[in-house]
Amino acid sequence: MIEINNVSKQYGTFHVLTDCSTKVAKGEVVVVCGPSGSGKSTLIKTINGLEPINKGDIRVNGTSVCSPKTNLSQLRSKVGMVFQNFELFPHLSIIENLTIAQIKVLGRKRNEAGDKGRKYLDRVGLKDQAAKYPAQLSGGQQQRAAIARALCMDPICMLFDEPTSALDPEMVNEVLDVMVQLAREGTTMMCVTHEMGFARKVADRVIFMDAGRIIEDTSKAEFFGNIEGRTDRAKQFLSRILQH
């Protein structure tokens, strides 16, 4: 589904990503973790071309993201993305947030888009909030609406960029619950997160990054079950975040 081959990216002489390669198969849930500044957010944004790369190639469902011939907008419309700061559009009501791209990008009729929007709002538990504006919702509600907005486009895979990092602790679980549910339904997901509980629960694989490199790319069982087999950097990271 997603193939990342020898991807490198640099700003001037600073290497944000160095020779990163990995794959995400259909239906697979991959969690990307690592210290801040390790390049994990940048890596996930290269998949739909929000971050251009200097070297390597990325393919989504066989289509190259980096080729100038690719219709990037069309490709992006099939890849759902959820951002750290929700990024709902403040001038549109929740239901309009969910329908705007369906109408303008997919060419759906307004009522068809509305039906789809309400269906997904119901699924994330926000049926009653359709007419409200983003600023009237809590952070957790906004992020669930943002997930619903991405799902409305019938994406072939979902990318999550630290979806719970900007949330109050009380609201983290309501968002994670939605994500767990998606994972269990077989959604292909790549997820940058520090929520190791989520990783343990639903991840198939865990990628660990440091200083722009993929240091570990291994099964969940191996990553959490065999701490001794981990690289020193991953061990250090795990010991710091798992002691809570």
Binding site: S77, F83, N85, M153
Partner: peptide, 15 residues
């Protein structure tokens, strides 16, 4: 506007 607004719009497939 937050930089993410543009990213979110583009990520949905808007030109």
């Amino acid at each position: 506007l937050p930089k993410g607004q543009r990213s979110a719009a583009l990520a949905l497939g808007l030109t």
